[in-house]
Simulated scan of single mutants.
Amino acid sequence: MKILVTGFDPFGGEKINPAIEAVKRLPDMINGAEVIKLEVPTIFGKSAAVVKDAILKEKPDFVLNVGQAGGRRMVTPERVAINFQGGQTPDNSGQAPQEGPIQVDGPAAYFTQLPIKEEVAVIRKAGLPAQISNTAGTYVCNQLFYQVQYLREHDFPQLKAGFIHIPYLPEQVVNKNAPSMSLADIVKALTAAIGAIVS
Protein backbone atom coordinates (compact mmCIF):
# COMPACT_ATOMS: atom_id res chain seq x y z
CA MET A 1 0.00 0.00 0.00
CA LYS A 2 1.23 3.51 -0.83
CA ILE A 3 0.21 7.03 0.16
CA LEU A 4 1.50 10.04 -1.76
CA VAL A 5 1.82 13.03 0.58
CA THR A 6 2.51 16.45 -0.89
CA GLY A 7 3.58 19.76 0.62
CA PHE A 8 3.80 23.19 -0.97
CA ASP A 9 6.96 25.26 -1.25
CA PRO A 10 7.12 28.68 0.50
CA PHE A 11 4.91 31.43 -0.94
CA GLY A 12 3.69 34.94 -0.24
CA GLY A 13 7.10 36.22 0.77
CA GLU A 14 7.61 33.54 3.44
CA LYS A 15 10.99 31.83 3.72
CA ILE A 16 9.50 28.57 4.96
CA ASN A 17 6.33 26.56 4.45
CA PRO A 18 5.36 24.19 7.26
CA ALA A 19 3.64 21.91 4.76
CA ILE A 20 6.74 20.71 2.95
CA GLU A 21 8.88 20.90 6.09
CA ALA A 22 6.50 18.53 7.88
CA VAL A 23 6.04 16.23 4.89
CA LYS A 24 9.82 15.81 4.54
CA ARG A 25 10.01 14.66 8.16
CA LEU A 26 7.27 12.03 7.98
CA PRO A 27 8.25 8.38 8.53
CA ASP A 28 8.88 6.37 5.39
CA MET A 29 6.37 3.74 6.56
CA ILE A 30 3.17 4.30 8.56
CA ASN A 31 0.96 1.37 9.57
CA GLY A 32 2.53 -0.77 6.86
CA ALA A 33 1.97 1.82 4.11
CA GLU A 34 4.85 3.31 2.14
CA VAL A 35 4.89 7.11 2.38
CA ILE A 36 5.91 8.87 -0.85
CA LYS A 37 6.84 12.52 -0.18
CA LEU A 38 6.54 15.21 -2.84
CA GLU A 39 7.16 18.96 -2.90
CA VAL A 40 4.75 20.85 -5.15
CA PRO A 41 4.99 24.42 -6.44
CA THR A 42 2.55 27.02 -5.19
CA ILE A 43 1.49 27.76 -8.75
CA PHE A 44 -2.02 27.45 -10.15
CA GLY A 45 -2.24 24.51 -12.55
CA LYS A 46 1.40 23.47 -12.23
CA SER A 47 0.94 21.89 -8.80
CA ALA A 48 -1.70 19.52 -10.18
CA ALA A 49 0.52 18.55 -13.12
CA VAL A 50 3.34 17.63 -10.73
CA VAL A 51 0.96 15.51 -8.64
CA LYS A 52 -0.45 13.79 -11.73
CA ASP A 53 3.06 12.81 -12.83
CA ALA A 54 3.73 11.38 -9.37
CA ILE A 55 0.47 9.40 -9.41
CA LEU A 56 1.38 7.91 -12.78
CA LYS A 57 4.87 7.01 -11.54
CA GLU A 58 4.10 5.77 -8.02
CA LYS A 59 0.55 4.41 -8.45
CA PRO A 60 -0.48 5.25 -4.86
CA ASP A 61 -3.65 4.05 -3.17
CA PHE A 62 -4.12 7.42 -1.45
CA VAL A 63 -3.12 11.03 -2.05
CA LEU A 64 -2.95 13.50 0.84
CA ASN A 65 -2.15 17.11 0.00
CA VAL A 66 -0.94 19.29 2.87
CA GLY A 67 -1.07 23.08 2.92
CA GLN A 68 -0.49 26.03 5.22
CA ALA A 69 -3.53 27.90 6.53
CA GLY A 70 -2.14 30.94 8.28
CA GLY A 71 -4.45 32.02 11.10
CA ARG A 72 -5.81 28.58 11.95
CA ARG A 73 -4.84 27.18 15.33
CA MET A 74 -5.78 23.56 14.61
CA VAL A 75 -4.90 20.85 12.13
CA THR A 76 -7.91 20.78 9.82
CA PRO A 77 -8.75 17.94 7.44
CA GLU A 78 -10.82 19.36 4.61
CA ARG A 79 -14.25 17.99 3.70
CA VAL A 80 -14.87 19.64 0.34
CA ALA A 81 -13.08 21.18 -2.65
CA ILE A 82 -15.02 23.78 -4.64
CA ASN A 83 -14.84 24.50 -8.36
CA PHE A 84 -13.73 28.10 -7.92
CA GLN A 85 -10.45 29.96 -7.76
CA GLY A 86 -9.83 33.57 -6.87
CA GLY A 87 -7.97 35.94 -4.60
CA GLN A 88 -5.45 38.74 -4.86
CA THR A 89 -2.25 37.00 -3.68
CA PRO A 90 -0.03 36.12 -6.64
CA ASP A 91 1.22 32.55 -6.80
CA ASN A 92 4.92 31.76 -7.13
CA SER A 93 4.83 32.47 -10.86
CA GLY A 94 3.81 36.04 -10.01
CA GLN A 95 0.31 35.61 -11.39
CA ALA A 96 -2.84 36.32 -9.44
CA PRO A 97 -5.54 33.75 -10.15
CA GLN A 98 -8.16 34.41 -12.74
CA GLU A 99 -11.43 34.39 -10.83
CA GLY A 100 -13.71 31.63 -12.02
CA PRO A 101 -14.13 27.88 -12.29
CA ILE A 102 -11.17 25.52 -12.03
CA GLN A 103 -12.68 23.07 -14.54
CA VAL A 104 -15.48 24.33 -16.77
CA ASP A 105 -16.88 20.81 -17.17
CA GLY A 106 -16.40 19.86 -13.51
CA PRO A 107 -19.02 19.67 -10.76
CA ALA A 108 -19.49 22.50 -8.28
CA ALA A 109 -17.67 20.54 -5.58
CA TYR A 110 -16.05 17.25 -4.65
CA PHE A 111 -16.08 15.61 -1.25
CA THR A 112 -12.97 13.88 0.04
CA GLN A 113 -12.80 10.08 0.13
CA LEU A 114 -10.59 10.14 3.24
CA PRO A 115 -11.89 9.37 6.77
CA ILE A 116 -11.77 12.92 8.11
CA LYS A 117 -13.69 12.17 11.32
CA GLU A 118 -11.22 9.43 12.16
CA GLU A 119 -8.31 11.74 11.29
CA VAL A 120 -9.57 14.35 13.74
CA ALA A 121 -10.12 11.71 16.42
CA VAL A 122 -6.60 10.27 16.22
CA ILE A 123 -4.96 13.71 16.12
CA ARG A 124 -6.87 14.69 19.26
CA LYS A 125 -5.94 11.35 20.85
CA ALA A 126 -2.31 12.30 20.18
CA GLY A 127 -2.93 15.42 22.28
CA LEU A 128 -3.17 17.98 19.51
CA PRO A 129 -6.03 20.26 18.39
CA ALA A 130 -7.92 19.27 15.26
CA GLN A 131 -11.29 19.79 13.64
CA ILE A 132 -12.95 19.24 10.28
CA SER A 133 -12.89 22.23 7.94
CA ASN A 134 -15.59 22.88 5.37
CA THR A 135 -13.62 25.39 3.34
CA ALA A 136 -10.22 25.00 1.73
CA GLY A 137 -10.35 28.60 0.48
CA THR A 138 -9.98 29.67 -3.14
CA TYR A 139 -6.19 29.77 -3.48
CA VAL A 140 -3.77 27.09 -4.73
CA CYS A 141 -4.63 24.70 -1.86
CA ASN A 142 -8.27 24.39 -2.90
CA GLN A 143 -7.28 24.33 -6.56
CA LEU A 144 -4.95 21.37 -6.03
CA PHE A 145 -7.51 19.58 -3.85
CA TYR A 146 -10.13 20.03 -6.59
CA GLN A 147 -7.80 19.09 -9.44
CA VAL A 148 -6.75 15.84 -7.76
CA GLN A 149 -10.42 14.98 -7.29
CA TYR A 150 -11.06 15.79 -10.96
CA LEU A 151 -8.13 13.54 -11.94
CA ARG A 152 -9.53 10.82 -9.70
CA GLU A 153 -12.95 11.02 -11.37
CA HIS A 154 -11.57 10.94 -14.90
CA ASP A 155 -8.31 8.97 -14.75
CA PHE A 156 -7.74 7.27 -11.39
CA PRO A 157 -11.09 5.96 -10.07
CA GLN A 158 -9.38 3.61 -7.60
CA LEU A 159 -7.67 6.53 -5.86
CA LYS A 160 -8.79 8.06 -2.55
CA ALA A 161 -7.67 11.62 -1.96
CA GLY A 162 -7.98 14.56 0.39
CA PHE A 163 -6.39 17.62 1.93
CA ILE A 164 -5.21 18.77 5.36
CA HIS A 165 -4.46 22.35 6.37
CA ILE A 166 -1.93 23.07 9.09
CA PRO A 167 -1.09 26.22 11.11
CA TYR A 168 1.91 28.52 10.84
CA LEU A 169 5.19 27.57 12.50
CA PRO A 170 6.24 29.69 15.52
CA GLU A 171 9.03 31.41 13.57
CA GLN A 172 6.48 32.62 11.03
CA VAL A 173 4.43 34.53 13.61
CA VAL A 174 7.16 36.51 15.38
CA ASN A 175 5.72 39.67 13.83
CA LYS A 176 2.17 38.40 13.31
CA ASN A 177 -0.78 38.22 15.69
CA ALA A 178 -1.57 34.63 14.68
CA PRO A 179 -1.54 31.16 16.25
CA SER A 180 1.15 28.62 15.45
CA MET A 181 2.14 25.00 16.04
CA SER A 182 5.59 23.48 16.38
CA LEU A 183 6.98 21.49 13.49
CA ALA A 184 7.32 18.42 15.72
CA ASP A 185 3.62 18.62 16.63
CA ILE A 186 2.58 19.08 13.00
CA VAL A 187 4.58 16.00 12.03
CA LYS A 188 2.97 14.10 14.93
CA ALA A 189 -0.50 15.16 13.80
CA LEU A 190 0.07 14.24 10.16
CA THR A 191 1.55 10.88 11.13
CA ALA A 192 -1.53 10.12 13.22
CA ALA A 193 -3.86 11.22 10.41
CA ILE A 194 -2.05 9.10 7.83
CA GLY A 195 -2.28 6.14 10.18
CA ALA A 196 -6.07 6.56 10.19
CA ILE A 197 -6.18 6.95 6.40
CA VAL A 198 -4.25 3.77 5.59
CA SER A 199 -5.79 1.57 8.31
Rank of each mutant, 00 (worst) to 15 (best):
A126F: 04
L64R: 03
A22P: 07
K37E: 10
V50Q: 07
A49Y: 04
R25H: 10
A69I: 02
S182Q: 13
I197A: 09
G94S: 10
I102V: 06
R79L: 07
E119H: 01
I30T: 05
A54D: 13
I166C: 02
E21S: 14
G87F: 06
E78C: 07
M29K: 15
K37V: 14
E21P: 12
G106H: 09
D155C: 09
M74C: 07
T191E: 12
I186D: 03
Q88P: 04
Q103R: 15
A136M: 04
A121L: 10
R79Y: 04
Q85V: 05
S93A: 12
G162M: 02
F44R: 09
A130R: 00
L64P: 08
P157A: 06
D155Y: 14
P179Q: 01
N177L: 10
F62T: 07
A189P: 01
R25M: 15
I3P: 03
V122M: 01
S199Q: 15
I164H: 02
L56Q: 14
L190S: 04
E14N: 09
G13Q: 14
K57H: 12
D91M: 03
Q68R: 11
I123Y: 00
V80C: 06
A33K: 05
Q147C: 12
A126C: 06
Q68E: 14
G162D: 07
G106N: 13
V63C: 09
Q143A: 14
P60E: 13
S199I: 06
G87E: 15
D53C: 05
V35G: 12
R72V: 00
E118C: 01
V23Q: 03
E119F: 00
Q113R: 04
K59W: 07
V40K: 06
L144R: 07
Q85P: 04
Q95R: 13
Q149L: 12
G86Y: 01
F145H: 02
K15N: 14
E118A: 11
E21F: 03
V198E: 07
D185H: 02
L128P: 00
I164T: 09
N83M: 05
K176T: 05
K59G: 12
G195L: 06
K57N: 13
E21V: 09
T135E: 06
E119R: 01
R124T: 05
H165R: 01
I16Y: 11
G67Y: 00
V63Y: 05
L169A: 08
L4I: 06
I197E: 11
A22R: 01
F62M: 13
P107Q: 08
E119V: 02
